[in-house]
């Protein structure tokens, strides 16, 4: 494992380099898509921590994006800098996530799914009805883009690099969490709770933490969404969006570190690829059904199977060549 880590770092560096040069020469629409892909990747990676690693489902990720987005929007509209506003949003999500984790101590699986789904709908109602705070169904507009010292992320390309930097840091942090004792505890919780407990893990604390950290990442995604779209309204954080994030996680590959990035790419970019055909949502739905039925491990699963086959045939070729 340790021998592979330098290679992993190299691949990460190459990927980062690709992402750095990618937008050059492209129109702002493409850059906008990349930003929204990065944003959804963060949200989906957060959910993947709760769901894929710790095995606790949440259908409320969009509401955390909402908490993050509204907090950032309201504070920056009041003149706060993004760098001060976003952490407040993320922290708030951490706390609310912690609270939403409590039901997870009592119920599992589908029941937990419904509790979190109900929570998301309640959030939507509050965001729509409390005009004084959230602007109600008119939403909040003209949200400023971040400005750090003399550097302004006002332009499309500048904002992309800002998003990329934030995402890279967030992913790095997540990478650290997954590899930390906490990360191992999350996995132990998913695999076998009783055993985890017998090994001396405080499963209550770990469950709550899994929720809180996953939610905080949702909040960060929201903190990016607010200045990206520069307009937020309740429908952007309704249950449908949570299901979309869940789709990204599962389609990408549940419990796989990079799966959510891939799933987010599919959800954000596939409609773009299929545009022009009148039936693109139908094709999209059929594709997802087929993928889930034939390959429940998702896109990463397909990729892995493919690579494994490749390695196997290469190994076979090598042994054949030997004698």
């Amino acid at each position: 494992m340790s021998s592979r880590r330098p290679l992993a770092l190299i691949v990460a560096a190459v990927l980062l380099a690709v992402l750095l040069i990618l937008p050059v020469g492209h129109g702002s629409y493409f850059i906008y898509l990349l930003c929204s892909w990065l944003m959804f990747t963060i949200a989906a990676m957060g959910l993947n921590l709760t769901l894929g690693y710790a095995g606790r489902i949440s259908l409320a990720q969009a509401s955390f994006m909402g908490v993050g987005a509204y907090t950032t929007a309201i504070l920056t509209l009041h003149g706060w800098p993004w760098l001060a506003a976003a952490p407040v949003g993320v922290l708030l999500c951490f706390v609310v996530g912690l609270l939403l984790g409590f039901p997870a101590l009592r119920v599992r699986g589908h029941f937990l799914a419904f509790v979190t789904l109900a929570f998301n709908t309640l959030f939507f109602l509050v965001a729509r009805n409390e005009d004084w705070l959230t602007g109600g169904s008119y939403g909040l507009s003209d949200i400023p883009r971040p400005r750090i010292g003399p550097i302004s992320a006002d332009g499309q390309l500048a904002f992309y690099y800002f998003t990329l930097a934030v995402s890279a840091l967030a992913i790095l942090a997540l990478w650290g969490i997954v590899r930390s004792p906490w990360g191992r505890a999350f996995k132990a919780l998913r695999e076998n709770e009783v055993r985890a407990e017998s090994l001396g893990l405080d499963t209550r604390r770990i469950t709550l933490l899994a929720f809180a950290i996953g939610s905080a990442f949702g909040g960060l995604a929201g903190a990016i969404e607010a200045p990206l779209v520069q307009y937020i309204e309740p429908n952007s954080f309704a249950v449908g969006e949570s299901l979309k994030v869940l789709l990204m996680v599962v389609v990408g590959g549940l419990g796989d570190f990079w799966g959510p990035a891939l799933g987010a790419a599919m959800v954000v970019l596939l409609p773009e690829a299929l545009r022009g055909t009148r039936y693109y949502l139908i094709v999209y739905a059929l594709f997802v059904i087929a993928l889930m039925v034939l390959k429940p491990t998702g896109l990463m699963g397909i990729g892995k199977t493919f690579l494994a086959r490749l390695a196997k045939s290469r190994a076979a070729a090598a042994t054949e060549a030997k004698p």
Binding site: A113, L243, L281, Y284, A285, L286, V288, I289, M292, P296
Partner: peptide, 22 residues
């Protein structure tokens, strides 16, 4: 089935809605 099945039924819901609409 677990989660992939849940996702598949969500996709079925999109499929039915969009088919009727189209």
């Amino acid at each position: 089935g677990g989660l992939p099945l849940v996702i598949a039924t969500m996709a079925v819901s999109i499929l039915l809605k969009e088919s009727v609409k189209t």
